[in-house]
């Protein structure tokens, strides 16, 4: 992670090292409080993926791939989607597709509103890994021009 030739300057690297954990935690906070405050699976997922993208920009691709590589990101993306549709389909067991069959609890508490926090977590998996993959593709993929060899 500390190869001075890769990535940006020392200032950026130091700031990144200090803030990247906070960004990740903030993303997790936004996801888990999605049902009681503004935010949710998508917004939180974007912030979580930003923390990894941050490492990638400051320290270079290899440093980020040590933490999460494409295979793991792809796995998490599919897992998030399948988790979402499974939770939705379980509702059919008690009557309806997407039925919120858990106890709703007390409003404005963290453990409340039944299945909605679980949906948020599933969405955050999908969004975080999906956005990370998009950034990887934009950084790595180069399409050759006409007549140029790859």
């Amino acid at each position: 992670m500390d190869d001075p030739k890769k990535g940006m300057t020392l200032i950026v690297k130091t700031i990144t090292r200090l803030t990247v954990g906070l960004i990740l935690l903030f993303g997790i906070y936004i996801v888990s409080h999605g049902h009681v405050s503004p935010g949710g699976g998508f917004a939180g997922g974007v912030i979580i993926s930003l923390s990894f993208i941050h490492i990638m920009l400051a320290f270079g691709e290899e440093a980020a791939f040590k933490k999460v590589n494409q295979g793991i990101a792809s796995l998490f993306e599919s897992f998030g989607a399948i988790l979402f549709i499974t939770i939705a389909a379980i509702g059919m067991g008690s009557g309806y597709f997407f039925l919120n069959f858990l106890r709703k609890g007390e409003p404005f508490k963290l453990f409340s509103s039944g299945l909605i926090p679980l949906y948020n977590i599933a969405i955050s998996f999908k969004v975080a890994s999906g956005l990370f993959m998009i950034v990887i593709l934009l950084m790595l993929l180069k399409i050759p021009k006409k007549g140029e060899k790859q």
Binding site: S74, A81, I85, A88
Partner: peptide, 13 residues
């Protein structure tokens, strides 16, 4: 809706 979407994501998983 469930069958094609579930099959699609199972495939990618």
């Amino acid at each position: 809706i469930i069958i094609p979407l579930a099959a699609a994501f199972l495939n990618s998983l």
